[in-house]
Write a protein that binds this DNA or RNA. Structure first.
Length: 310
DNA sequence: CCGGACTCCTGTGCGC
DNA sequence: TGCGCACAGGAGTCCG
């Protein structure tokens, strides 16, 4: 499930393949996965021309930028910016000339990339179609109107910013972490991973967290995401990077998808509950709901070290 | 305004 | 072996 680490790793694997390259042609197989931000000005172009231009036809890519879980493909000069959201099962794959995508179904957009010999492609594939592409008039508009609505980027979240946004809501802290306007980039996997690392129960009201707890949580989020990026992301089923490679972070998961298994810190049986319609796994010992004492000894070291497997 | 519930969608894995 | 069904969840929308 693509969250911040997967999108960042995708960015890193696609950048050397795409930066400086020109899109010669765009094939749109499914129009309905492309969304437009409300246009700030209209153009004289026809609809189809505007669509292809928005999808960067005849543009030279200069930059790939990530914010939260979103990836922006930025081209030369005063050109539109293409924003990619992977949703649950989205994939952005670079296919070198002569190669074939591992699967040919559910490919919604196909870009021809100028190459010698010709034949390099980029494809957007998304079976479940929770993902999509958003067209944006310019980088300035992307930053001022689209990304400005998101919370701070989770990879570099600072304690005082997290404490500030969590302090404004009585929602369960897990629900708040999933809200992209509170913090951008955390999804179901890394919310559970960060909470167990910080020793915080997922149902704690966000605004009840003490200063030291939000400090530990901010550290846990940054550490969890950094480690996952280094491992190439977490592949449960669908996620692959720009070269079609799976991530290796699944083996390091502490809580997510480990309900009923022993906690890696203390050995207690991990429980699962539902929060915000999302399966949530936590350790009843390391993440107490009511205790106001400093967290269990097990958490000591969890913010710097990988726990040994129990 | 806030927050919870519902909705979209398809592949997978389970029970019968 | 095959069928039907529950389940997975990011993010937009709706409603109390």
């Amino acid at each position: 499930m693509p969250e911040l680490p997967e999108v960042e790793h995708l960015r890193q694997t696609l950048a050397p393949r795409l930066i400086g390259r020109t899109i010669s042609r765009v094939h749109v197989k499914r129009r309905d996965i492309v969304r437009s931000l409300p246009a700030s000005h209209s153009t004289n172009h026809g609809r189809s021309t505007r669509l292809r231009r928005g999808l960067l036809e005849d543009c030279r890519i200069t930059q790939l930028r990530r914010y939260g879980k979103q990836l922006a493909i930025i081209a030369d000069g005063n050109t539109p910016v293409l924003v990619v959201q992977l949703g649950m099962t989205g994939q952005l794959l670079f296919i070198p000339a002569g190669d074939k995508p591992h699967r040919n179904d559910h490919i919604h957009i196909r870009w021809s990339v100028v190459s010698d010999p010709p034949g390099d492609h980029l494809v957007f594939r998304d079976p479940r179609r929770f993902g999509g592409l958003t067209l944006c008039d310019s980088l300035a508009e992307l930053e001022s109107r689209h990304w400005a609505n998101l919370g701070c980027d989770a990879l570099t979240i600072r304690h005082r910013d997290l404490h500030g946004t969590l302090g404004k809501t009585r929602r369960a802290v897990k629900a708040a972490l999933l809200d992209q306007q509170v913090i951008a980039g955390v999804g179901n996997i890394y919310a559970d991973e960060s909470l167990i690392r910080a020793g915080i129960h997922p149902l704690r009201p966000a605004s009840d967290l003490r200063f030291e707890e939000t400090r530990d949580l901010a550290r846990a989020i940054r550490l969890t995401l950094r480690r996952a990026i280094r491992a190439g992301g977490t592949t449960m089923r669908d996620y692959v990077d720009g070269n079609g490679q799976s991530g290796r972070n699944r083996a390091d998961l502490l809580a997510y998808a480990r309900g009923g298994k022993p906690c890696r810190f203390c050995g207690s049986v991990l429980q699962h509950i539902v929060v915000s319609q999302r399966t949530t796994t936590f350790c009843p010992n390391c993440q107490p709901l009511y205790s106001s004492t400093v967290c269990p000894q097990a958490r000591k070291g969890s913010l710097t070290e990988l726990p040994s497997t129990v």
